[in-house]
Computed example of a mutant assay.
Amino acid sequence: MFGRLGPTEIILILVIVVLLFGAKKLPDTARALGRSMRILKSEAKAMKTDDATANAAKSDAGTSETTETPRTIQAAPGEVSQARPVGEPDANRR
């Protein structure tokens, strides 16, 4: 019954979405979605590099002491005005 959507049904759904949200809000919504995807992608990339750095630091831990600089989270790539320092998670806090 609801297994397949044809082109007519897809067009009908798009028309309903435009009527509900309005043509003015759709570009803003798409822009916000794009920003969110960029932030998610950059955070995932940062997590991968942090893991690689942590693994390398663990293997070199016996040779030298390193001082870590505080990491920052940016609101969006390129927006430095809203960046804030991030501390390491506290294992005792729950």
Rank of each mutant, 00 (worst) to 15 (best):
E88K: 15
R4N: 13
D60H: 12
I11K: 15
R71Y: 05
G6H: 11
L20Q: 08
L14A: 13
P85S: 07
L20M: 13
G62H: 03
G34F: 01
A91I: 12
M47Q: 11
D28S: 14
T69F: 05
A44L: 01
T29K: 10
R84A: 06
A76I: 06
A23I: 13
R71T: 05
T69H: 09
I11S: 14
E9R: 13
S59K: 15
R31N: 07
A46L: 02
K58C: 13
P85C: 03
T53I: 10
T66I: 12
V80Q: 12
D60P: 04
P77T: 06
T66K: 13
I13G: 01
I13R: 13
K25V: 04
V80G: 08
V86A: 08
P77V: 05
L26D: 01
I13A: 14
E43Q: 00
G34M: 03
K41S: 02
G78S: 10
R93W: 09
L5S: 15
R93Q: 13
E43V: 00
V80E: 15
Q82L: 07
A57S: 12
L20E: 05
E79I: 08
T49Y: 04
G3F: 14
R4W: 14
G34R: 02
E68T: 11
A46E: 01
E43C: 03
I10Y: 11
V17G: 01
P27M: 03
A52C: 06
A56G: 05
T67L: 06
T72N: 06
T72F: 09
D50P: 00
S81Y: 11
L40W: 02
K45H: 00
G87Y: 08
D60G: 05
V80C: 08
D60E: 12
D60S: 11
L19A: 15
S81F: 09
L5Y: 15
E9H: 11
A23K: 09
A44T: 01
N55G: 11
A56M: 09
S59Q: 13
E9D: 13
A61N: 06
Q74L: 04
Q82M: 08
Q82A: 08
S81C: 06
G78F: 03
R4K: 15
G3S: 14
D51L: 10
L40P: 00
R31D: 07
A32Q: 05
E88A: 15
D51I: 10
D90I: 04
D90R: 06
A46Y: 00
A83Y: 07
E68D: 12
T69S: 12
A30W: 00
G3R: 15
N55P: 03
S42M: 04
D50K: 04
M37W: 04
Q82P: 01
